[in-house]
Simulated scan of single mutants.
Amino acid sequence: MVSHQTPLDLSTDDNVILINPRFPKADFDKLYSLAESVQHELGLQAHVWIATSGSTADSIGSTKLVALSKKALIASAVSVNKHLQATAEDIWTQVLPHFHVGGLGIEIRSELAGSRVVPALKEGKWDAQHFYQTILKEKCTLSALVPTQVYDLVAHNLRAPETMRAIVVGGGVFDAPLYEQARALGWPVLPSYGMTETASQIATASLQSLQAQDYPEIELLSHADARSNEEGFLEVKALSLFTCYAQNTAEGARHWDPKIQGWFVSEDRGEVQGMALKISGRSKDYVKIGGEGTNVARLRAVLEQSALELNPLWPLHISLLDMPSERLGAEIHMVTTLNSSAAEKIANLYGEKVLPYEKIRKIHFVTEIPRTDLGKIQWSALRRILC
């Protein structure tokens, strides 16, 4: 098993582990060992392990891993290429990490179509101007972005180059106002829906939707089917579905396949109307920040532990929650009844324990954090205080 392989060799039975290199080493090693042990136990071959961005894990080391077969990844790429009418003449511009299915998907699509991929990060980081100049220089035609990146293009008032013919947008809520602003600047954005478990998108707006300015429907791709269950959660069946999960838990390492007769029940609420998907929202505590998924409940636990390390009474006087962000989709805010000095100490210690996109972006100072008689925070009341 190898930890990194670019481009991914689709012809071998090798297993590949793709984990965020920014994870703390102890967590990285823990996840790597998990993938190795489960792969060996199940006798898996020709699979790629990816940490799900939708994980509700209590710590980075207990993040759920998804095992995707190379056949599933190929099925996804073939379907997306068909939807985008991709050919060897196309040039992809790449700004998504390879350890996410969005970035990995671009590499596989281009390999199958015989097209070229041009990296467009500046010193490993997203930069709207650099992305724009790369498109101009290389005459790129296709790309995939998260809503935050589209926001930056709009904020810089950058008009789409004529060569760019389609940009798949996923990894978070892509709301109508931002879509309309991007389209007004000529960006050929196609809203999509997918997840790590489906090896990228399973529904995307059509190329024909670019002939209009209205927010388009997202349509199921040729390799996927979907339905809603009685609780309103979206169920998916697709050639690109994952093989199994693996996770480090308090009881030890475990693996499981949650599919029932080939159907996977997602954490998303939505409905299917013909070939169109309508997603209404995700389960509580899981949010995406600039396309990166996180569990707010886990972050609260990190914050409380940080406060406890500084003063045993402080955890009672702090909490955090996700707040809407025009640019990022959501961002993390801290709320406290403590003074600014204490709050900053907690925020700084917390910031050392989380990933960059999970850091606190604003501190709200309040006189009281509303709680129930049992001491549970009343989140709706707290949001009303802050808004």
Rank of each mutant, 00 (worst) to 15 (best):
V168D: 08
Q45M: 11
L386E: 02
N295W: 14
Q5Y: 01
G375N: 10
Y193L: 10
E111R: 12
I167M: 15
S340P: 00
F233N: 06
R165T: 07
G102E: 07
I385V: 10
E326C: 04
K82V: 01
V118F: 07
R159F: 09
S143V: 09
K82N: 13
M334A: 05
A26S: 15
T134N: 08
D257W: 09
P315I: 00
S228A: 13
E36G: 08
P191D: 08
T372C: 06
D152K: 04
C140M: 04
G43I: 05
L207Y: 07
T56C: 09
L316K: 12
Q378N: 10
T249K: 08
L136N: 11
V168L: 14
G329M: 05
A26F: 08
E352C: 12
P177I: 00
M275R: 15
S110N: 02
R165P: 02
A88H: 13
V354M: 10
I218C: 10
D285H: 10
L221C: 04
D322W: 04
E326S: 11
I91D: 02
P356R: 01
D90A: 04
G186T: 06
N81W: 08
Q94D: 13
N311F: 07
P312E: 08
P161H: 01
V265C: 14
Q378Y: 01
A155Y: 10
S341E: 15
L382A: 02
D214L: 10
T336A: 08
E111W: 01
A182Q: 01
D13E: 14
E111A: 13
I202Q: 05
S319V: 07
Q39V: 11
W256K: 00
K125D: 10
S62C: 00
W126K: 02
Y32L: 14
L374F: 09
A128T: 12
T204R: 09
E235R: 01
S69T: 14
S3C: 08
A160W: 05
S325L: 06
A86Y: 00
D285L: 06
P356L: 03
F99W: 15
N311V: 02
E217K: 15
E344G: 08
G170K: 04
T56G: 05
A72S: 13
S115G: 08
P188E: 11
A246L: 07
T87D: 04
E217M: 13
I318V: 15
K288M: 12
R227P: 00
K70Q: 12
A46D: 06
A88Q: 13
G290M: 02
